[in-house]
Computed example of a mutant assay.
Amino acid sequence: MQLSQSTAIVTGGCSGLGLATAIALRNAGMQVALFDVNTELGAQRTDELGKTDTLFCATDVRDEASVSQAIAEVQSRFGEIRVCVNCAGVAPAQRTLNRDNHPAPLAQFQSTLDINLVGTFNVNRLVAAAMASQHPCNEHGERGILINTASIAGYEGQIGQTAYAASKAGIIGMTLPMARDLAGLGIRVNTIAPGVMGTPMLLAMPETVQDALTASIPFPKRLGLPEEFARLVIHLTENAYLNGETIRLDGALRMGPK
């Protein structure tokens, strides 16, 4: 797929992996719409990336009306949507039972699944509907690509990651059937499962915690770079034969219990 002069949506696009992705897509010549709940940061990122080719939409990925309105704004401003990268998510830590054997709050589990898994599906289904009405962008009949963010926790969830791991496993599990659902329309679906990435949230942790995390990574023995995630997004977009796939980006890390 040709990136230049095309339009991409990035959820959670104002920080972390989403911001790195938005920067890479803009550098590739794309118009980018940032879907995020942080309106103050949204205005700042629009200034940084360039107001001409960047649009911020205050968006709750869990809410159908919010996402539909944001998609309509993108279509009105930029026209057809070719790429959607889902990076919005949360990562709370909560054991199933606490030290006093009290059960974890059900509301937190539900909220995590609502944002990470239901939110990803909600955005995908609505963007896919918009893509389906578009003309193919090349002779192969390709109309667009959906790229989701899972985690290696979806395979090897650690202690305290029940909700997070379940949400990310759900994203991995829906990748292939969604790709099959949309294949006839020329819409591809892929997922990236990052390992321990150097996002602002992780870099804010004490150095001792960061060192403990990197010690178990075989090679390269460091945190993953958000820019490396973004480069994989670019490759998935350009490589038309990658479809229905979840790719680990983790330096061969396999997570232990804690």
Rank of each mutant, 00 (worst) to 15 (best):
E245F: 07
I145D: 02
T214M: 08
M174Y: 07
T7P: 04
L113Y: 07
Q5M: 09
T162K: 00
A212G: 11
G144E: 04
M178P: 01
D100Q: 14
R143P: 01
V90Y: 01
L41A: 15
A72W: 03
I159D: 07
L49E: 06
L249Y: 13
L176E: 07
T54P: 12
R26Y: 00
F121Q: 06
S133F: 00
A169H: 12
T162C: 10
A128N: 02
I217R: 12
Q5D: 15
T237F: 02
G157Y: 07
F56D: 01
V123E: 01
K221Y: 01
V127W: 06
N243F: 04
R62A: 09
N116I: 06
A204I: 00
E48V: 14
C137N: 00
R82V: 03
I192P: 08
N148R: 06
E228N: 11
I152C: 09
K51S: 13
L34W: 14
F78M: 09
G50V: 08
L236N: 07
G144R: 05
E73L: 15
T246G: 03
A166R: 03
T96D: 02
V67T: 12
R125M: 09
T21A: 10
P177N: 04
I172N: 02
A70G: 11
R180A: 09
E73A: 15
R82S: 11
V189Q: 02
G198Y: 11
A65T: 14
P206M: 01
Y241N: 13
